[in-house]
Amino acid sequence: MTAYADLPLIEQAIRTFAALILVTSFALLAQSRVVAAIQVFAWQGFLLAALTALVAWNSGLTHLYISAALTLALKALFIPWLLIRQARRLGILRDLDAVIRPGLTLMAAGALVIFCYNVVVPVREFTQVVTRDAIAVSLALVMIALLMLITRRKAITQVVAFMSLENGLFFAAVTATQGMPMVVELGIAFDVLIAAVIFGVFFFHIRDSIESLDVDQLSRLREIND
């Protein structure tokens, strides 16, 4: 096993960015203001784009530069812009989506990270340090995003959680396998774009139907009623 300081500078930088991305996902989890959550999400997208560019430089794969540019455009600029615009039009930009027991939630997220490392470490095939970190961190990003999804009650913060889950998957693709084939990456980016637009439309439908964006009030359809 190689120590951190013995790695080439570029790989150290990649690790640092990976750690920063993990930090942003903790920040997302604890952030209760709508506008701040969207901003943290934009930072996560920006860091992910930077990380992709670093991996591209390190591996010399030119197609990763295109992914980096796509990520920057979609995750760091377009989606945050769209979310902020919709939130402003709905008048919920400054709203709070209070995190229930923020301390406990953050502790749970910390436990999830340890859990993910514990799952990944025993697998013999992941002995290469880089891939082991990559799989563990991406699994942790996905888990924390899921935790955020279930602890939030506003539609808009749930969408932020959903998109950060997508970031976790993209992180896995970039670090563990140096990207996916181009046609797949373009397809995924297209799906994410369409999903973001549909979510944007959907906020208005939810507001018009229940006069609120608290998805807690979406509770008419259940198996056990009356």
Binding site: S138, L139, V142, L146, L149, A155, Q158, F162, L165, E166, L169, A172, A173, A176, T177, M180, I188, A195, I198, F199, F202, H205, I206, S209, I210, V215, L218, S219, R220, L221
Partner: peptide, 26 residues
Amino acid sequence: PESIEAAWKYFILCGVGIAQALFGTI
């Protein structure tokens, strides 16, 4: 309201579910 709720559930649950499939694909 019911159809909006159904669509939201569909979107989030299937979206999260199928995200696991992407992880498997990777």
